[in-house]
Design a protein around this nucleic acid. Structure first.
Lengths: 373, 373
DNA sequence: CTGTTAGCGCATTCAA
DNA sequence: TTGAATGCGCTAACAG
């Protein structure tokens, strides 16, 4: 039977050599830009042969031979988060500029996926990995970092994994948010965050929030989690800080937490009306966009379209619906985070041996109607 | 100088063979699951050696040898569009199930990027490509499709490129939207869409919109673009259809188009008040989420938070802010689109020779406050 | 059942 | 200035 013309075998370097009437070595030299020492005549013949055969060198083979394939892994915890997509843009731009090709792996919030992808990446012999990991411990990240292949972390640290990190300056960002809210006269601020035991950036944001409240607000007491205690009203001009943990992965938990939030909002509204609006508003400080969205959706379903008269919302991250909804945000320098991450990684790949570096980039406060009275 | 312990060269198949005191062939057999004919004793030794050396086979080398590397390319026009991310989820799941590894390439709406990535993909010898292309002609897609490497299109066709396609049933979707709007009593419907000369799905949606208006509404005339003509009011119970082209890539054009929209809204409101609400509302039918967002942002800035009292909005695509805003949407079966695309591609890679197939999946209408009075 | 041999497509010595 | 030979890590005949 005749083979259908489906697979007109791709030309190899040997084909080109034959076509150009020369040896493979010269072709290889040409491909690698070692033109300096090559007769213009030969060079022309090679050029022609390559064009005629529509030859394209096989990256796999090149990689196998020289030991580096210009591939880097990009492990993403959650592409659903606009933050991730934006970081990716920076990553792609940088890769492009540095001649790298990113292998994008989306763990979709599944630890098992993360493990598998990591393994796959090493199997493809990527030269390095950029990790925006789930909150898992080093255990699954064994192959990378320190003694393994070069790695740089994005947004969060991973316990026991020593590597460069680039992300938001969480401390400054939290302060920015708290200060803004206090400037706007809010004295009851709820920090809403996903479970942060495993994710360093969440922890940092939370800690910084507490510190800021302490510093600027002279908070008296802060309640953690849903232990049900209410903080005592602070002295005039002080602010009270609260923390609400929202476990988006657990519907039941989420509902419970939101119910607690409702109580806080209602009781604030019930407080004697020393403030102009119909009800006194509390302020909500979301640690990231997914949390902000969850809260906003809930409040809207509970209080209707004008839920923002019940609570002010500010969020770290600036998703596209923020402008539409009018919530205040702290925008992360996402593109630059991605770009820098690749630059760091590239340096490591090239052999730079400095001790682990941290690159903390500042966020930008974007004030919208939500917090301006 | 001594090499720092940075790169403890990865074990190769040869190392394992030596460690296990056997030949490479047996190791290879083990790796490929050909255990049936292998003494349990040898097998155990191999297992141990692999574990001891923490050996992981090099995919590049395997690919080079067998001629297939299990890599497929995924060319994405715009990751910023939630649609894309959702499709990607399906793609990843399917790849996972079929033992494929997707190389994700994000063209970020740049034709040049698209070209470069395509070239890069062939250079890495991907076995196939899933293309969600920009509106470019086959020219840049030369290497794929028909005579090149297997390809399947997502969401849109590409002129001159014959390949399997999977996407939304645009005709049914447009009808769903129009019918719903008419059921709700809207008689003035504006279809808002990005320039559709190059993108088949936009064209299809538009055509289907016009047809639906014609069929159900008995439209009298339809205006195209910004020629400034107003359609005559139709007979009682009929609906008028209009088309507004929004070029999101051109701020000036966008502003002009939106101004036209404003005029339409204002003049509708000025019409004698035969309808209950303060102003008569026209309906906007966005061809996709980016368009819907742009329109919503504009209306909000022009009419304030209650812009929805001026215009009803329904959109194809169901971004996460739709629920928050309360606009009606037609949700695409994105996950399945991605999944099916990979299945098609896999079949092609395995040699299936059927003529180009089209897989049209139905959308789902999600009614929200925007269109329910 | 198991080991030997010969490449996959390319980069790199080393001669010529 | 150019080419022939060698081998990257692995699989696939082909013997034993």
């Amino acid at each position: 039977m005749s083979t259908p013309p489906s697979a007109p075998r791709r030309a190899t370097i040997t084909d080109v050599a034959r076509e150009a009437g020369t040896g493979k070595t010269s072709i290889s030299r040409y491909l690698n830009g070692e033109m300096s020492v090559m007769s213009p005549e030969l060079r022309a013949r090679i050029e022609a042969a390559i064009a005629r055969l529509n030859y394209q060198p096989n990256q796999m083979a090149r990689g196998l031979k020289r030991g580096r394939n210009r591939l880097i892994g990009m492990l993403l915890a959650d592409l659903t988060n606009p933050y991730t997509v934006e970081v990716l843009q920076g990553v792609e731009a940088a890769c492009h500029a540095l001649g790298l090709m990113p292998l994008i792996c989306h763990a979709a919030n599944e630890v098992e996926m993360e493990r598998r992808y990591l393994q796959l990446l090493t199997t493809y012999r990527v030269e390095g990995v950029i990790v925006n990991a789930l909150g898992v411990s080093e255990e699954t990240l064994r192959p990378v970092g320190g003694s393994g292949i070069p790695a740089v972390l994005v947004d969060r640290q991973v316990d026991g994994l020593i590597a460069d990190m680039v992300g938001l300056d969480n401390r400054a960002a939290a302060e920015l948010g708290v200060r803004h809210l206090m400037d706007q006269g809010f004295d009851d601020i709820w920090f809403v965050v996903q479970p942060f035991a495993q994710v360093s950036s969440r922890q940092l944001r939370h800690t910084a929030f507490l510190d800021a409240i302490g510093r600027y607000g002279g908070a008296l007491r802060v309640e953690r989690d849903s232990h049900g205690e209410r903080a005592n009203p602070g002295p005039r001009g002080a602010a009270r800080g609260h923390t609400l943990v929202l476990d988006l992965a657990d519907a039941g938990e989420t509902a419970r937490s939101l119910a607690e939030l409702d109580r806080a909002i209602d009781s604030a509204a019930a407080d004697s009306g020393s403030s102009p609006p119909a009800h006194r508003r509390i302020a909500l400080f979301a640690a990231n966009a997914p949390v902000a969205l969850c809260v906003a959706l809930h409040l809207k379903s509970r209080y209707g379209a004008d839920w923002q008269t019940r609570a002010a919302l500010v969020s770290i991250d600036d998703p596209d619906w923020a402008e539409l909804t009018g919530i205040t945000t702290i925008r992360q320098p996402t593109y630059e985070i991605g770009y820098r991450a690749v630059e760091f990684l590239h340096e490591r790949i090239e052999g730079v041996q400095a001790t682990a570096r941290d690159c903390l980039l500042p966020g930008e406060l974007i004030v919208r109607a939500s917090t301006s009275r």
